[in-house]
Design a protein around this nucleic acid. Structure first.
Lengths: 168, 168
DNA sequence: CTTGGAATGTCAACAAGGCTGACGTATTGT
DNA sequence: ACAATACGTCAGCCTTGTTGACATTCCAAG
């Protein structure tokens, strides 16, 4: 995508008013609630929470990723991550294999059961996303992604794009 | 599975693939991080966190709102909210006025200093949003909002629209 | 006028999930 | 041989959420 629509001539900048920006901020707040609602519901009772979901998601996404990688991706300390991983491994959802090239590293993989839970979680989340996409239509979806990408920190955008390059 | 929207003409449904949906999910995750980063930074050191920001935002947005209202808006228990409000009142940022019609109610207002902090917080957040909007352009912004609204729970959408009706 | 229920405040106890600091252990690379 | 890396773990702390219980104040309906 090249040129932004040149704001010249009669083109108004009304979409940049404080009012419009505030609406966007509130929309993010309320939408994020919906975004996390389904997985939260599924995990509650299983003694797990959002942190476990995030770990499962990215391990599924990048099988064999290391602990350090995951730390950077999630933006948490190794102690926080370790607590989550310990629970996932104890529950038989994740496997940590010693690295072959560098045996200090642990390569993380979902077990069969971990993959099953991942599927359940992402099905729920995807279903909501699909409904929203369908309602809004392809043009809106393109805009949605553009704005979100522009909103990220540089570091996050780098990570996002690295992931996208892998399987999308 | 219900009906897909009639794939009329040459319109493809490629924007509904699992791949595209996953990208949207990851974009939400990374973008939300950026979304909250600036206010978090400002509040850190001031002995306050995201919860305080949210309360300040909605009190600013709906001056005179009651505790019950705020509870529903934020989706937390009165105990959680009360702890936050107590801190805000102790810090001289928020004032709780006894209701005139119904004296059980507390009507919440920002003090001068509360308004100053609110300004600082929302300036930072708005600035990021403005940059993102400007980068993406008006058409993308419209799509962004459409998708977010479609992603909300019914209850959240109701609240979002009630707010929008008030000042926007 | 009494009384039930609503709106609020508060205490206690607890959990999830962040954080820092410190220390230990393999393992790798110089 | 030694420093640095990757990881695990213990201990302690913070924020922000939860439930349960109880007190107060006050409106509204019987």
């Amino acid at each position: 995508m090249a040129e932004a629509p040149a704001p010249q001539g009669g083109s108004s900048l009304l979409f940049l008013t404080d009012e419009q920006l505030r609406k966007g901020i509130e929309a993010m707040f309320f939408a994020y609630r919906g975004f996390t609602a389904d997985p939260d519901r599924i995990l509650e009772g299983r003694e797990m929470g959002r942190a476990h979901h995030r770990a499962i998601h990215f391990i599924h996404r990048s099988p064999g990723t290391t602990v350090s990688n995951l730390m950077a991706l999630l933006g948490v300390t190794k102690q926080s991550l370790n607590r989550v991983l310990r629970a996932l491994i104890a529950a038989g959802l994740v496997e940590a294999r010693v690295g072959r090239r560098d045996r200090r590293e642990r390569h993380l993989h979902l077990t069969e059961e971990g993959a099953r839970l991942e599927r359940e979680l992402s099905d729920a989340q995807r279903e909501r996303m699909r409904a929203a996409y369908r309602t809004a239509g392809p043009v809106a979806v393109a805009g949605f992604r553009q704005v979100l990408e522009a909103m990220m920190d540089d570091e996050s955008r780098r990570q996002y794009e690295a992931l996208a390059g892998r399987g999308g």
